[in-house]
Amino acid sequence: MSDVEKSKWTRAGGWARDNTNLLLLVALIVAGALLSENFFSWTNLMNLMRRISVNGVMAIGFTMTLLVGGFDLSIGATLSMCAVLCVGIEKSSGSAALGMAAAIGAGLAMGAFNGVLMMVTRGGSGEAFLITLATGMVGTAIALTYCSGLDIYGVNAEWYKAIGQGNVASFPIAAIIWIVLMVVMQVIIKKTQFGRKMILSGANKKSAFLVGIDVNGMKLFGFTMAGLMAALAAIIMTSRTTAASPYSGNGADFDAAIASIVGGNSLVGGKGGMVQVLIGVMIYGLITNILNLTGIDSVVQYIVKGAILLLAICLDKLNRR
């Protein structure tokens, strides 16, 4: 091959390496189309969007913790906690708004708690893992205690149900909320001073600190956001199912993590964004969809997803230097 041709191939190879997530998404769309005839029908696509919204919002929160150089295993427990609080308070007080407020409050509190612990321990992703592992267990226990281990049924308010189940111009409201949140976060991250400082603090805490960035404060922000997102995801989820289970968050942190990392957000901190979240959540949703269509046992799906996560991390490591 001539030198010019060779460099075109290496550049193509480089592009492929940087954009594996996009390629994977395209491959999955093709696979989906092949497996199901009405794949591209509006109803099917909209259902897909609605289904992935909850994980989508969770993935936003998880990504925020990655960007500040951390990791969050507790968002699943926060989801459960906020879900049972939301529905439980709605039932006991009769006001859906109060339930939502309680959920949001709990999410913020949990996230802030994680953030403060991260500040105190000057933690990186290793510490974040252990800390959120423990706070997650505490959160699950709180959820279980609150509802005594039983599912709570009965969301009543129509407007509340509309969040998860309704459409605006045949586009699911849940998906709209997800997309709006992503847009807002992306603007903050890429276009504001605050967002830029956040990214820098996650990428290299020492150099960020030396230019006067409040690295600890950024950690607090990132983890609080994760808690808030979990609360919002809980609201969407309970409005769709009109019930809340203290086990609803089981594995939700894993799902969010896979979506976020497969989409291209880096474990190392400071690299990534909402575009990666969008791609990753769609990839994850399509994989789940395809696995379901092919009738693979849900537990085996677990293993497949685990393998994908490992692959994604290997790729992330290779891409890093």
């Binding site: 990428a203 020492k206 150099s207 960020a208 400071g270 890093r320």
Partner: peptide, 9 residues
């Protein structure tokens, strides 16, 4: 490398 720059950026 570690403190003066954000090396991957």
């Amino acid at each position: 490398k570690e403190e003066g720059l954000t090396i991957d950026f």
